[in-house]
């Protein structure tokens, strides 16, 4: 099992914003117990979905080559319940990006209904994180696989409107390592 909480991107504009979707299905195991007889998509996992969408948008700003982690959930408001059969739409927007990290605001909607709002801060661990931690926390090939699954390169564009190209990023390095 992999920790995938977005299904795909429908918009991805480098340095600006992105839109991703997540279909909620009763076949997802966590809904069987949350709650028994009244399945609701956990807001923690909806937050994770927004964080993953925002995290990939931020990671692109560092060339998909460095470790970016969610450092802080500064605000989270939820307004309703999300049930099996609903489709969540996550909209994430970069508010500020700097050398040390980035701030992202995110919303989750079901149709036109606003379900959640968050403010997320990401920390950039930098090129020397592997050396500092004594271990590699992700492989570029895993990131490449994930970006491909969620269709970043199929919908992604740069700020000037040109298409994102996979070969612009160092994603194939370390394949099989």
């Amino acid at each position: 099992m992999r920790w995938f909480w977005i299904d795909r991107f429908t918009e991805f504009v480098c340095g600006s914003h992105a839109v991703a979707t997540k279909g909620v299905s009763l076949s997802e195991g966590h809904l069987h117990d949350h709650f028994v007889g009244y399945p609701i998509m956990p807001n923690s996992l909806i937050t994770e979905g927004m964080a993953q969408a925002g995290g990939l948008l931020v990671s692109e700003q560092y060339g998909f080559g460095e470790l970016v982690v969610l450092g802080k959930l500064a605000k989270a408001k939820f307004y309703s319940c999300v049930r099996p059969g609903d489709t969540l739409t996550y909209r994430v927007k970069i508010d500020s990006v700097r050398d040390s990290g980035a701030a992202v605001t995110a919303t989750a909607h079901v149709g036109d209904r606003l379900h959640a709002e968050t403010l997320l801060f990401y920390a950039r661990l930098g090129e020397d994180s592997e050396e500092l931690m004594g271990a590699r926390l992700f492989r570029p090939s895993d990131l490449q696989h994930w970006l491909s699954l969620v269709q970043v390169f199929e919908v992604g564009i740069h700020a000037d409107g040109t298409r994102m190209q996979e070969h612009e990023y160092p994603l194939s390095e370390g394949l099989g390592t």
Binding site: G71, D95, S96, R98, S100, G101, A103, F121, A123
Partner: peptide, 22 residues
């Protein structure tokens, strides 16, 4: 904590319409 400084800087930039460089 260290991540809070990113948050604080972000909020100060918005509150005062300033740009705080690294």
């Amino acid at each position: 904590e260290s991540i809070d400084f990113l948050d604080i800087v972000f909020r100060l930039e918005k509150a005062f319409d300033i740009k705080i460089e690294r």
